[in-house]
Nucleic acid binder design. Structure first.
Lengths: 231, 231
DNA sequence: ACTTGTTTTATACGGTTGTTTGGACGGTGG
DNA sequence: CCACCGTCCAAACAACCGTATAAAACAAGT
């Protein structure tokens, strides 16, 4: 039964690559973690590089089925879809309880793409980005140029990615108490959804007060009126 | 004069560490780049790790004076300040013409903080974040809770950070033509400012047309959006 | 039981790494 | 002139890396 050791090797490789990086991770440590012989990596994958590539593929494959995208009934309003999309995205990026190494491994691939990257883009990132674009298309005017739509998508994704990339730094800046009280995944997802929907004009903006008394701008006066928020 | 070789060593270390990573960068390559003897790193810094720490400090120190924050006259409207802040942030993150290694080095430190990190937070990130918070405070209502303000700041920073972290992937997804046409720093800064200001209610939101003439949408008034709810 | 093919093991090899060392060089004060 | 001191250099060191190999263990068909 080679399937067992091969699978165990893939998972151990994913873990070690994720928190040591490609060069820092040694095949010896990976094999020790997987409890297989040192030569197994050469026997099954031939190479450290090919082991890495397969580990990345395996990681993203099992992450898809771990946190699947929600299925919406056809009449679900786009605002609700966006909110749930953000929630799912954040859950994937921050990782589930004991598989936190998977998103970390993918993040490394995002920051400096290797050979495993193109497949990751085609099979993982682009399909999900298309879902997001589909949601946004239902919200913005029909004549919105595609590049604007794309950058809107990147704005949503970027807000989520921030807490994966700089979460530790953010925690340092606000202190542990505020972090513990206001940075759960649900709270973050709610905030990001609200910012995005406000930018899209679906919910009330954050600073409507100073907007109400701003300079007479034909664009802004004709837009969203004022949801009675006069604090 | 040791000061010369020491400084040259620091800069070369910054460059090599930035695009090779800590472990991948060899002291041999650093010394070759700096055109000094291999033993110099041990003579001046004692250790590879301490050389790295000093290189990070040196990098962020010289980056501050490279792209300074704009000085605003006291009556500058916060909208304009935010726009220029985003522009500066983006310029720093994507790097100036021939010093692109500095932000890359700092990004590595953000993603997995080491010993040099706390100093970076105290001297670099927090002061600039405070500037951003000061701008936002002038826009949102006075009774906005601090944690909401902080997360608004993170939403702005996150949108910028995205193009530093995932810029390559983004380029893969949209194709080289759209990237060349719409992803200059000025265009990205304008987009991010517009999204942020729209979320804050300072400019018209993106979906105002479809929002204004759309069917009486129950969501925008009752379900998701009503700002009466407080978390 | 013997052969055949697959999987696992122990061990070895060449190369690269960070670090150390002993001394050469070149000014400076006595 | 000489000893001194900070700086630099070439060479070497021990440790560890990825990879290769040959033999052992195993499974299964005949």
């Amino acid at each position: 039964m080679s399937d067992d050791t091969q699978q165990r090797l893939l998972e151990a490789a994913g873990r070690v690559f994720a928190d040591r990086g490609y060069r820092d991770a040694t095949v010896r440590e990976i094999c020790a973690e997987a409890d297989v012989n040192l030569a197994a990596v050469n026997y099954y994958f031939g190479d450290k590089r090919r082991l890495y590539i397969e580990a990345v593929k395996c990681a993203h494959r099992s992450m898809i089925e771990q946190v699947p995208m929600p299925e919406w009934p056809p009449e679900t309003p786009p605002q609700e879809r966006l909110q749930q999309f953000v929630r799912t995205l954040l859950n994937r990026m921050l990782g589930e309880k004991n598989v936190g190494w998977r998103p970390r491994l993918m993040l490394r691939e995002v920051i400096e793409p290797t050979e495993a990257c193109r497949e990751l883009v085609d099979q993982y990132f682009r399909p999900h980005f298309e879902i997001l674009l589909g949601i946004l298309r239902q919200i913005v005017p029909a004549d919105t140029p595609p590049q604007v739509l794309h950058q809107l998508g990147f704005s949503v994704v970027g807000q989520c990615l921030f807490y994966r990339v700089a979460g530790e730094i953010a925690g340092m800046m606000i202190g542990p108490r505020e972090h513990a009280a206001y940075y759960s995944r649900e709270q973050l997802a709610d905030h990001i959804s609200r910012v995005s929907l406000a930018a899209l004009g679906c919910v009330a903006p954050f600073g409507s007060v100073s907007f109400a008394r701003g300079p007479a701008d034909p664009l802004s006066t004709s837009s969203v009126g004022d949801p009675a928020e006069q604090n």
